Structure formats: structure tokens, C-alpha cells
Amino acid sequence: MPVVLIAVVSLFVVAPLFLVIIDTGKIGVISTFGKVSVRVLYSGLNIKSPFSQVTKISVRTEESTMSSVENEGRMQGDDSVEARASDGAQVKVDITVLFHVKPDAAMTIFKELGVDYEAKIIRPVIRSAIREVIAKYTVTEVFSTKRDEIAQKIKEQVASDVEPRGVVVEDTSFRDVKLCEALAASIEQKLTAQQESEKYEFILAREKKEADRKVIEAKGQRDAQILISQSLTPKYLSYLYIISLKDRQGTIYVPTEGGMPLFKQVQ
């Protein structure tokens, strides 16, 4: 019995030196005496050297959020990004970027940047891209009219900087854009006035189309009346009258010297 107990205890003590479990969605990077191996470990149970250390790098979708809301991102306090629009107005942007590490780049990222690669390349690149892109737009465009376009431009800028390092940018979204109260109120008034102007322009265009339709309709009726009045000769009217009588019982046609028949109702 003591032998069995010793064997079980030894197994639990020795096994972790030779075995390592890599969770789904992670890559194991091996380092031995400070040297990073080119071989990586994938999800499941793996055998390793007892002298090696395995660092697990996530290859799942991760998010990097910069926000003014307490504890919304990974940093404490106000972590929003300040930027200046093309017209000089200053804005504060809350943003979230979704990304993941390419599995075949996990070893290189760990070797060059360590496990805190987000703080070293992702966040600085995001801040730089926000300031660079927003500088090309007016504050009104940033606050309202072109937010989706700006988010897409930021995504493209971030991707161009980090994807060569093995990080794939999946999506970028503006969580919030903050202005000073006076500037925000001014923009809201401007947008409201613009919407009202567009509404009236639409109404005027619709009324003009309706007026044009009525003119065309009236012209068509006038042309039709002219054509009808020109075609209604006495002979044609007589012809129409004769046609209308052809199915009436008791009607006979009596020819006359002038060529026009007389009609007599047979009782």
C-alpha cells in the first residue's frame, strides 16, 4: 500500500514536468533557458521537456476598449482618446477594436513583444490612427454624419500597422464621441436645421412633379378633344348612329335620293 501511494504521489509531482494541457483557443509557446523554440503546442495534452516553460497565447477574438467609463476597458479611469478635428474642435472618442493573433505568428509575437503585446502595439496604434483619421474630418462629421466612415478608416489604418506583426483586426466601432456641451448643442441645432431644409426641399420637389403631371394630363385631354372634334363630321356621326341601330329590332333602312337612309320604326 505505501508503494502504491508513493507511486501515485510521484506521478502527480513528476507528470506536470513532462505534460502540459493547452486550452482551446490558445497556442503554447515553448521557451527553454530563455530561448524561444520555433515549435509551438496546440490545444490538447502535449509532452514537453521538464526544463521548458510553456506560455499560453490566446488566438481567440480579443477586444481592446478605450473608454471614459470607469472599468469599461482594461485600464482604470478615463481611457478615452482625445483628438482634434480638421476645424480645430477637440473631441474625446470611446472606441472598441476586435482583433486576434494569427496562430502561426504567436511564437514571433511572444519572442518580440511578450505576452503584453496589446499594450505595446495594439493600443498605441489605435490612438495614433484615431488622431490621424479624425484630423481629416470636421467636428460635425465626427459627431454625427460620418461616424461609420471614420470607424472604417480607423480600422484600415490600424490593420495596415499591426497585421504585418501577425495581428488581424476584425472590427472597429465608435462607442461614443464627446464634445463640450456648448459645441454639442450647436451641432444638434445645425443638424436639425439641415434636416428641416432637406424635408422642405423634398416636399417642393414632390409638388413640382405633381404639377408637371397635371399639366401633362391636361395637355393630353386637350389634344384628345381637338382630335375628336376634328374627326366628328356629319357623315361620321351618321355612321355611328347607324351602327348603334343595327341590333335594334323593328328598324328598317329606307334609301333616299340623297343616298342617306331614312329610319322607320316598325310597330
Rank of each mutant, 00 (worst) to 15 (best):
P2S: 13
L5E: 12
S10Q: 02
L11M: 10
L11V: 11
V13W: 13
V14S: 01
V14Q: 02
A15M: 12
P16R: 12
P16M: 10
L19N: 02
L19I: 15
V20L: 02
V20Y: 05
D23I: 00
T24A: 10
G25L: 01
S31A: 11
S31H: 13
T32S: 14
F33R: 11
K35D: 10
V38K: 15
G44F: 03
L45V: 15
L45T: 11
N46P: 01
K48H: 03
S52Y: 03
S52K: 05
Q53L: 02
V59Q: 01
E63L: 03
S67P: 04
S68R: 12
N71W: 09
G77F: 10
D78C: 09
S80T: 03
V81E: 11
R84A: 08
R84W: 03
D87T: 09
G88R: 09
Q90G: 03
Q90I: 15
V93C: 03
I95E: 05
L98S: 13
H100G: 00
H100Y: 12
P103R: 11
A105F: 05
E112S: 11
A119M: 08
I121G: 07
P124W: 10
S128C: 02
A129Y: 06
A129L: 04
A129Q: 04
I130V: 15
R131G: 08
I134C: 12
T138H: 08
V139Q: 00
V139W: 01
E141M: 10
V142L: 05
K146A: 14
D148W: 05
D148N: 14
A151N: 07
A151W: 05
Q152C: 01
Q152F: 10
K155D: 00
V158R: 13
E163F: 07
G166I: 05
S173K: 15
S173P: 00
V177H: 07
V177L: 05
V177S: 05
C180R: 11
E181M: 02
A182F: 03
A182S: 09
A182P: 00
L183H: 11
I187C: 03
I187D: 03
L191W: 02
T192H: 07
E201A: 13
F202R: 14
A205W: 01
E207T: 08
E207K: 14
K209P: 00
E210R: 12
K214D: 06
V215W: 04
V215M: 08
R222V: 12
S229D: 12
S229K: 09
Y236K: 15
Y236Q: 13
L237M: 13
L240M: 14
Y241D: 04
G250C: 05
I252E: 12
T256R: 14
G258P: 00
M260T: 15
K264V: 09
K264W: 02
V266S: 07
Q267G: 08
Q267F: 02
